[in-house]
């Protein structure tokens, strides 16, 4: 899976943590083990009155991109279960244009 990564549109990650539980369901991880975690930059206000408050889904070493699901032609569990539909799985070639189009995004590879 070395050519693959996740693109995250963190403008719209609502911090629900569905990805955390969906990942655990898929892999049967123990309660204190995670394939992806949602980090938070807690709310703070800029001088112009606008707000920064961001959730950052971060895959861990346990992330295998749900290779069994991929083999069945399905999406990784975090991608499918994401309520805000902010995670995309693909090759760098597929994901790079998403980043070019979308501010507040990142490509991440565990």
């Amino acid at each position: 899976m070395e050519n693959y990564a996740l693109f995250v549109d963190y403008e719209y990650c609502s911090g629900c943590k569905s990805c955390e539980l969906a990942c655990r369901n898929e892999h049967d991880f123990k309660p204190d083990q995670w394939g992806i975690r949602v980090l938070e930059d807690k709310p703070w206000q800029l001088d112009d009155g606008s707000w920064e408050w961001n959730y950052i889904p971060l895959p861990t070493k346990l992330c295998d991109f749900c290779k069994d699901k991929i083999a069945r032609g399905e999406e990784p569990s975090c991608v499918m279960h994401c309520q805000a539909k902010v995670i995309e799985f693909g090759t760098y070639e597929e994901l790079l244009p998403l980043l070019e189009k979308k501010p507040m995004g990142y490509i991440v590879r565990p």
Partner: peptide
């Protein structure tokens, strides 16, 4: 043994919230 979303559902399209994901 496992709870998953249904990607064919026209409204939720595979997504679930943590409460259904913890259904088991």
């Amino acid at each position: 043994v496992k709870v998953e979303g249904d990607p064919t559902h026209p409204i939720t399209r595979g997504a679930l919230c943590p409460r259904c994901l913890a259904l088991k």
